[in-house]
Design a protein around this nucleic acid. Sequence first.
DNA 1: GAGATGTGTCAGAAATCTTTGACAGGTGCG
DNA 2: CGCACCTGTCAAAGATTTCTGACACATCTC
Lengths: 123, 123
Amino acid sequence: MPEVPPPAPTGDALLKVLSALGNPHRMRIIAALTENRNYVSALAREIGMGRPLLHMHLQRLEAAGLVVGTLELAEDGKAMKYFEVTPFFYELTPHTITRAAATITEKADPAERADRTAKEEAK
Amino acid sequence: MPEVPPPAPTGDALLKVLSALGNPHRMRIIAALTENRNYVSALAREIGMGRPLLHMHLQRLEAAGLVVGTLELAEDGKAMKYFEVTPFFYELTPHTITRAAATITEKADPAERADRTAKEEAK
DNA sequence: GAGATGTGTCAGAAATCTTTGACAGGTGCG
DNA sequence: CGCACCTGTCAAAGATTTCTGACACATCTC
């Protein structure tokens, strides 16, 4: 079975991944969860961070598709949300960035082209 | 000549790269400069963005080591700063992130906040 | 000199992201 | 019931990032 090359991610998706990973706390969260999956409260204690804050970071990572959380019921009936990292893979080169940049649906686009060229000096 | 495997970047370096790339404008700047090098003012017109703003973005990209700028004197004597992308290559996987996370010198580190650790064992 | 080009920087507004503390559930146990 | 866990959300404060409009300086051309 030949290794299939990773599909090119859309600009917005890659943007989410990069901004999600570009944060020391979230990087550490990925590191902690890579070693072994864990539930929110325990993870919060492990890396010394408040639950609400960790919750938000996990949400950001999950939105980027880097981790997944599943709500499981323990034997004693308590509900705990376990998080684990997804086996992601991204290659960052000028080429991949260029390719991704072409498909960005951020703000501003419909009304803009070659009209605001010599506008700043015109005062 | 065998291809040398890319060296593992330090946590702080990777952090800079990721947060630099995790921005739509900077991604487009990389895309534009990948096609051909350019000087600040022309690039600003090309992607429709104010010079001061572009200047700041280029600074961020250069600090991350993704682009380099060289001040050159044109034939007519005008000084123009040409920017071009560096052939960077980063592999993003749970493993590389974990490895990088171990070497982060961001805020909080000198004194590990391990004070409420006695309670978590009470499971 | 005026005008067009290039460079750079600065201060403050605007928009975002990060962080904290309080609250509102739920379960099982002594 | 009260305590010890778990889950989640919210509002407001705090810290950063992003963006804009001046400003200053240089060169070449008219």
